[in-house]
Computed example of a mutant assay.
Amino acid sequence: MTKIAVTGVTGNLGGMVSRLCKENGIKVRNLARNKEKAEKMGFSDVFKSNYDKSEDTVKSLEGIDVLFMVSGSENPNCVQQHKDFIDVAKIAGVSHIIYLSFYNASKNSVFTLGRDHYATEEYIKENSFKYTFLRDNFYADFFVNLCREYGEIKGPAGNGKVSVVVRSDVSEVAAKILENPEKWENQVLNMTGPEDLTMEEITKLASKYLGKEIKYIAETVDEAYESRKIWKAEQWEYDSWVSTYTAIAQNEQSGVSDDIEKVLGRKANSLAEYFRKL
């Protein structure tokens, strides 16, 4: 029987995937940095695991065939941490990595963290794993949360478009793939919503469904860096926040894929559908 491990179960997406697998009768080993927290959240068969080469991490992957790997928490050493974890997976005999990557990831991605995802994808391939890359676009949930919390979206996105994807759709795709991982070996699947939207269109929908006026404020790149100084952060964080919008401005996040439908047999949820379910 194929042995499956799911990382990051105390996080949003990893947790959703693990729960869906359980509902669907797929047995998984749950990996978490904080074992106690994961157990308190109701997960069983939990192993302590970090994106490193520690003894705990080595043990957590022993006997595993298929690994669902969410990207690690954003930090400047993210790629090295991913590589350490992938090295351990290789030693442990993992044969197939399903990695949650990023839409249009490349070494020259405008969105700075997209470059980290590309480097991780390349390392997985270099190490001769069978792979499935789920390339997420920006989450609809992220923009909706901005609208609810701040009553506006502001950034240098211009009139660029983004095919935002609903996070729960991505978790359903991952869980479905884990039912029959072999079917999806050595494939790149693009996780997008069913439509391209500008920031103006997103805020218009938000205004309609949230029942209050939500504005899009177009900033220059300089203004965007300046306005984000109200949060104390490191330079790489400011770069990632601002490049979320410059990537959209350059239409790097536009384009609609039917890969979600290919896996689930139904269309991806639109932003309006997501709002209706809130």
Rank of each mutant, 00 (worst) to 15 (best):
M69T: 04
T2P: 03
K53S: 14
A5Y: 07
E182Y: 01
I202F: 10
K83G: 08
K107P: 04
A206W: 12
F43C: 01
N50I: 02
D52K: 13
L100M: 05
K267V: 11
A206S: 10
N180K: 05
G14I: 11
E200W: 03
E219A: 07
F142W: 12
I153S: 12
S207K: 03
K262F: 09
M41A: 07
R115N: 01
N24P: 05
E273N: 02
K154W: 11
E201K: 12
F143I: 04
E172G: 00
D116M: 01
D65E: 10
I214A: 09
R266P: 04
V263Q: 10
F102Q: 11
N12A: 14
I98P: 00
K267F: 06
F111M: 14
V166M: 06
A5F: 08
G265C: 09
C78D: 10
R33V: 06
N269T: 07
S163C: 07
S257K: 09
A92Q: 04
K59M: 02
V188R: 08
K3R: 10
A206D: 12
G15V: 12
K83A: 09
G193A: 11
I214S: 06
V162S: 08
V88F: 09
S227P: 00
Q187N: 06
T57R: 01
E219R: 15
R266H: 15
N190S: 09
A174W: 03
L134E: 01
A38R: 13
T2M: 12
L189Q: 09
E200C: 02
I26T: 15
S44K: 15
D141V: 13
R33C: 04
S171N: 01
F275Y: 14
K229P: 09
K176F: 02
A218Q: 15
I214E: 09
Q235S: 06
V70N: 14
A233C: 13
D259V: 03
L197N: 03
R19N: 14
Y238P: 06
E195H: 05
H82E: 08
N190A: 13
A175H: 08
E62C: 00
K59L: 01
E201Q: 15
Y225P: 06
E219L: 13
R19L: 11
M1A: 05
V144H: 04
D52E: 06
Q253F: 04
S73L: 14
V28H: 13
E172P: 07
E200V: 14
Y216C: 07
